[in-house]
Design a protein around this nucleic acid. Structure first.
Lengths: 149, 149
DNA sequence: CTGAATCCAGGCGGATACTG
DNA sequence: CAGTATCCGCCTGGATTCAG
């Protein structure tokens, strides 16, 4: 097998090392580890959805607001700022009237698209399994497992 | 190309379709979509760390509490219950004195290990880039971009 | 149109003490 | 040991309004 060293992501899954070993090598449990803190930034609902939206290309503020149903302007801006601060997205301002602001992924931002896509696909493919499990849990646990006060 | 239908994960990355196309096919932006709600459950710091820990095998309550630095008993139990409800982990009770409770991944839970490992590796490999970006952002933005109140 | 600012309720989440 | 229960600060995050 030949590694393409130009692509960071390409060699990520090869050689196919067990996930347990790969995880064990990272000290993500350490609060002081930068990777731990980075995970905290990424691991939230809105951030992930914003990155999903931006994989489709450059978008304006109101386009994002429209696509990401239910997000408030405050949360949208807050997460956009956060992503910009992390260097994952870029903010470009066009000094026109009315103003126009474009958001797009940086190269670093594009590098996280693949991992997030994998995660999203897992959610999409197993959502019914999880839904069924939750319903069963809610039914059984109430009756013969634990009384709900 | 031959798909191994026995393995869910095996066919996830093949054929190598662009992430943008794969994401576009999922309506994860729809709040009503079960996949969207599932993402909300997964996308939080503690849940991910718990799943990371359990990839190393069955663990007891206090082992998890010890490994996941900084988690309070309340958050640990809350996230464990949540994961159990989603069908990702299993809780086994040994009626002994003192009591012993083992937590382990279900087959469904094991299926998410790989996506999470990919995400963790991304965080680990790019944490310095992000850290540098954040520092630069904090320095420049304060002076010549926006005054901090 | 793109935000900033303010207000405010709800809930997240930590600390602690306690139970089986 | 493995949680539960309670208190409570504070921060999230929504709604709304206003500004450039």
């Amino acid at each position: 097998m030949v590694f393409n060293l130009d692509s960071d992501d390409a060699q990520l899954n090869y050689p196919p090392q067990p996930a347990i070993d790969r995880i064990a090598k990272m000290n993500l449990f350490d609060t002081n580890c930068a990777g731990h803190q980075l995970l905290e930034h990424i691991a939230n609902k809105w951030t992930i959805l914003i990155l999903y939206a931006l994989t489709q290309g450059t978008k304006r503020y109101h386009e994002l607001k429209q696509q990401i149903v239910g997000i408030s302007p405050k949360m949208l801006i807050q997460n956009l700022r956060n992503l910009e601060r992390c260097g994952l997205i870029e903010r470009e301002i066009y000094p026109s009237v009315p103003p126009r602001v474009d958001y797009s992924l940086t190269p670093l931002g594009e590098s996280i698209v693949e991992p997030l896509a994998v995660l999203g696909e897992w959610a999409y493919r197993h959502m019914l399994d999880v839904k069924a499990a939750m319903e069963q849990y809610d039914n059984t646990s109430k009756d013969d497992y634990w009384e709900p006060k």
